[in-house]
Design a protein around this nucleic acid. Sequence first.
DNA 1: TCAGCATATAAGCATTTTATTATATAAGTA
DNA 2: TACTTATATAATAAAATGCTTATATGCTGA
Lengths: 112, 112
Amino acid sequence: MEKNSLEGTANILKLMGDKTRLSMLGLLIKHDCCVCEFVEMFKMSQPAISQHLRKLKDAGLVKETRKGQWIFYSLNKDNQYYPLVQDVIKYIPDQEQKLILLQQQGLRISCD
Amino acid sequence: MEKNSLEGTANILKLMGDKTRLSMLGLLIKHDCCVCEFVEMFKMSQPAISQHLRKLKDAGLVKETRKGQWIFYSLNKDNQYYPLVQDVIKYIPDQEQKLILLQQQGLRISCD
DNA sequence: TCAGCATATAAGCATTTTATTATATAAGTA
DNA sequence: TACTTATATAATAAAATGCTTATATGCTGA
C-alpha cells in the first residue's frame, strides 16, 4: 500500500467531502465530462461548477482538455492520490444514472 | 461492496478531511485512547480535542466508555461507514508512533 | 464534604468555504 | 466584424468550521 502524508490525505478527503465534488469524481471515473454537462446534471450555476472543478484541478485530481468551445474534464490517473480516489468511489452509488438521464434529454455533449 | 448514500459518504469524508480527526482514527484503529492522551499527543487544548471527538461520535464513528475518571474512545465497528474508514486509513502513515512517544514520556493511561 | 483531575459544553471570534452576481476571455458562426 | 455559446475569474455575502476562554459536570480520594 502506497502511503501518502497525513496532511495531504486529509486535504484530498476534505475535497471529496462535498457531495457535488464527490459525485463529479464518481462520474469522471466512468466518462469525461464538460462543464455544461455538470451544470445541467447538478442544476447548479456555471460559476459554482467551475469553482468546484478548479479545486479538483488545483489538487491535481483532474485534468482539462479543450475540444473546440468545450472544455472536457477527466481524472488524472497519474496523481499520487488516484488510488485513494478510486477506492473511495467504490463506496458511493453509481453516478452513471445522471449521465443517462442527461443523454435522454439530448443534452449530452459528444466530442467527435 | 456495500454502498452508502452519496451524501452520507461525503459527510464522513468531510469529517475525515481534517488532519487531527484523521490521525485520531488512525490511532483508534490500533488502540483505544482517552481524551487526555489525545491532548498530549496533538499538543492541542482539551476543549478542541473534545470537540473533534464529539463530531466523530455524532457521526457514529466512535464510541465512548467511562473508566473511572477517564473516558476512553474506541472505533465503532458496527457503523455502516466503518469499512470505508478502514480502507481510507490504509493510505495514511502508521499513527502508532505517536502512542509510542507518549509511552516513553510515561504519559500513557493504562486502563487496569 | 471538599479539593483536584478529567471531560464536556457554551459563547465568542477569526478563518474558510460555497454560493451568487457581474464581468472577462475564448471559440464558433453568420 | 459582430453575436452567441462555453468557460473562467473576481468580488461579495452567508454559512460553516475550528479554535479560544470560561464555566459546568462527574469521578476520586483525603
